[in-house]
Amino acid sequence: MGLRVDLTFDCVAAGPLAQFWKVVLGYEDEPPPAPFATREEWVASFGEPEEGEGGGAWLRDPAGVGPRLVFLEVPEPKVAKNRLHLDVRVGRGPDAWARVEAKAASLVAVGGRVLATVAGHHVVMADPEGNEFCVAA
């Protein structure tokens, strides 16, 4: 069996953050593992949650190419800049910058923020919880 990489994000509100990243990447909710009918049933199979343990959300690439994304609610707030960020690539070509700008604008409409623009190259953004990422060709 080959290796794969999942990306797990600690966050304050898993549901809304997962919704944002579904728009960013075109991902979908990942179904629960068999034999569970719902994620809630799967989570309950682990027993009572620890104090301060929150919910979660699981996303997958419908094409099966990109990494699985997991959002887990934690009680502590983010205190420093992330040491890792994602680059969302929209593709190269003659209209690449227009696609970068359009993608950035669509993400602002669903809760993202533009932090900086390097014209003709990339847009630095933040998701609703302040995690930085770039939109680039």
Rank of each mutant, 00 (worst) to 15 (best):
P94T: 10
V70K: 07
V88N: 12
V108W: 14
L69N: 01
A116V: 02
E28K: 08
D61C: 04
R99A: 09
R92L: 13
H122V: 07
P35E: 09
P67T: 09
R39E: 15
V123I: 12
F9C: 04
F71Q: 01
E40C: 00
E50Q: 13
A119G: 03
P16R: 10
P35D: 07
A98R: 13
G56R: 05
F9E: 06
D95Y: 13
V123G: 00
F71N: 02
F36I: 02
L86H: 01
A57R: 05
T8M: 14
D29E: 14
L115I: 09
E129W: 07
A116S: 05
P33I: 04
G54E: 04
V110F: 10
V108E: 15
A109Y: 10
P35K: 05
R4D: 11
S45H: 07
R83I: 04
E41N: 06
W97V: 00
V23F: 07
E76N: 07
V114W: 12
A80K: 02
R99Y: 08
A18M: 00
F36S: 04
W42R: 05
D95Q: 15
C134L: 01
V135C: 09
A137L: 03
G64H: 05
A126G: 10
V124K: 03
E132T: 05
R4S: 15
P67C: 11
A119N: 08
G55C: 11
A119V: 14
A34T: 10
A37W: 02
E73P: 02
G66L: 11
L25H: 09
G15Q: 14
G52V: 03
G130M: 08
M125K: 01
P94W: 10
E28C: 07
R92A: 14
K81I: 07
Q19K: 11
P35A: 04
E129D: 07
E40Y: 01
A102N: 05
E73C: 03
V23L: 08
F9M: 10
G93E: 12
V65H: 15
A13C: 09
L86S: 01
W42C: 03
A137T: 00
R4L: 08
V24W: 04
D61I: 01
A119C: 03
V118E: 13
V90E: 13
V88T: 10
G26Y: 08
R39L: 11
V23H: 15
G54M: 06
T117Y: 01
T117S: 02
W21F: 12
N82C: 03
G55A: 14
L25Q: 08
G2S: 15
V5E: 11
E50V: 00
E129G: 00
E28N: 12
G111Y: 03
L3Q: 14
A96D: 15
E40F: 01
H85Q: 13
E51P: 12
P31I: 04
H121P: 00
P33W: 12
P33T: 02
L86Y: 02
M125C: 03
V88C: 11
L25M: 14
R60W: 04
G130L: 08
T8E: 15
F133P: 06
V114H: 08
T38Y: 12
L25S: 09
E132I: 01
R83Y: 05
A37H: 04
A44Y: 05
W42E: 14
A104M: 07
M125H: 04
Y27R: 00
A34P: 15
